[in-house]
Simulated assay, not measured.
Amino acid sequence: MPHPRRTALITGITGQDGSYLAELLLEKGYEVHGLIRRSSTFSTTRIEHLYQDPHESDARLRLHYGDLADGSRITTLLEQIQPAEVYHLAAQSHVRVSFDEPEFTGTTTGLGTTRLLEAIRMTGLPCRFYQASSSEMYGITAPPQSESTPFHPRSPYAAAKVYAYWITRNYREAYGIHAVNGILFNHESPRRGETFVTRKIARAAARIARGEQELLHLGNLEARRDWGYAPEYVDAMWRMLQTDTPDDYVVATGTSYSVRDFLTFCFEHAGLDWERHVRFDERYLRPAEVPDLIGDASKAERELGWKPAVLTPELARIMTDAELAEVPGARTPATPVRQTQS
């Protein structure tokens, strides 16, 4: 059990993984700091239930404005927070969008990792560093993919993640930083962004069942993925930083399902025949497709004691139930989360 005031910094805390990881760390007694970008709108909906007034003496979740493009700001925050653990989850993480914004993707997803690692090196903090690597790095290499499988990235996002993976290993080997790569295969939840295919499918199934929508437009239905449950995957992140020797780990279920399969699971759970409502739209195709990703997480099971419990069919039901439970029109604008003045 960590010390009640062990401190962690999470970049990308307002995302799906960041919100679940913040919950996990708070349950374990951590003081959690999150890096968020300043913008004209608030995007803290996923973590509002965790937040306390930062001026209260017992506040254990604090948010700080910052940007991965600003190395000096990152350095200042590290010196101020003095985290024992840094979880780097922030990125431009949408694969299809990365083809439209390749330079931005490289700057944030790739070079942002370098800026954070360099800030750790410059400050001399004895912290442990987690890099969110991705199964997309494997691209068209034959499954199953493990820690020793060669990378063949097929998108600007995947290429940027390969760079971030190797720069993390470089700082570990060159400077002795306790840095790990978590090569996470696809992991989903009701908190997944609405533009990602699993959430898009689950949401459409619920809306069609309620009569609010008639059709769903999708691209490649034959792409196969190893889909797991995000709350389980953030536990693997934490376990990686508790090891005495830093290393890299694949996190996956070891199963493979197609987009067509996911459609079937969600629509049948909502009492629908997906073929009556789904239409092909070539706009959702990638310029270069990744056909099949299946992870071999035997190393994580052996060395971390981590094993998934939720597989794709149950995941689809969890996500569809969450969408079916939504009351149309009941959502109100998110209450802005107050920030620290740092």
Rank of each mutant, 00 (worst) to 15 (best):
R279C: 08
K299M: 11
T264F: 01
T312E: 01
T245Q: 13
G305K: 09
A252Y: 04
R302P: 02
K307A: 06
L324G: 00
L272M: 08
P308R: 11
E282G: 15
D296Y: 04
K299W: 04
V290Y: 00
E314V: 05
D321T: 10
Y249V: 06
G305Q: 08
R260F: 01
A322V: 11
C266L: 06
P246S: 06
A288I: 13
I294Y: 00
Y249K: 06
A252G: 01
H269C: 06
P313T: 14
A316K: 04
E268K: 15
R302T: 11
S298R: 15
A300E: 05
T255N: 11
L263N: 06
Q242N: 11
D247V: 01
W274R: 05
L315A: 00
E301G: 15
I318Y: 11
R260Y: 02
K299F: 05
L285F: 00
F280M: 00
T320N: 13
G305M: 04
M319D: 00
K307I: 02
R286A: 10
P291Y: 07
I318Q: 07
D247A: 14
H277R: 12
F265R: 09
L285G: 12
I318H: 03
V310S: 01
D247S: 10
P291K: 02
P246C: 05
D296S: 09
A288D: 08
L272G: 14
T320H: 10
A288Q: 14
A309V: 14
Y249D: 04
T264H: 12
D321K: 05
A309T: 15
H269N: 07
W306Q: 10
T245M: 03
S298M: 05
W274E: 04
S298F: 00
A309Q: 13
E301H: 09
E301Q: 13
E323S: 04
S258Q: 09
P287K: 10
A316W: 01
S256D: 08
E282S: 14
P291R: 05
A316V: 07
F265V: 07
E282V: 03
G271F: 09
A325K: 10
P291W: 12
G271E: 13
I318V: 06
T312N: 04
E323Q: 12
E268L: 07
A297L: 01
D321W: 02
H269I: 01
T320F: 07
D292I: 14
C266A: 15
P287L: 12
P291C: 03
A322M: 09
L272C: 13
L285A: 12
L285S: 10
F265L: 07
T255W: 02
W274C: 10
F267A: 12
G305T: 03
H277F: 14
A322L: 08
P308M: 03
T320R: 12
E314Q: 13
T245I: 03
M240I: 10
R286M: 11
D281R: 11
S256K: 05
L263Q: 10
L311G: 00
A300T: 04
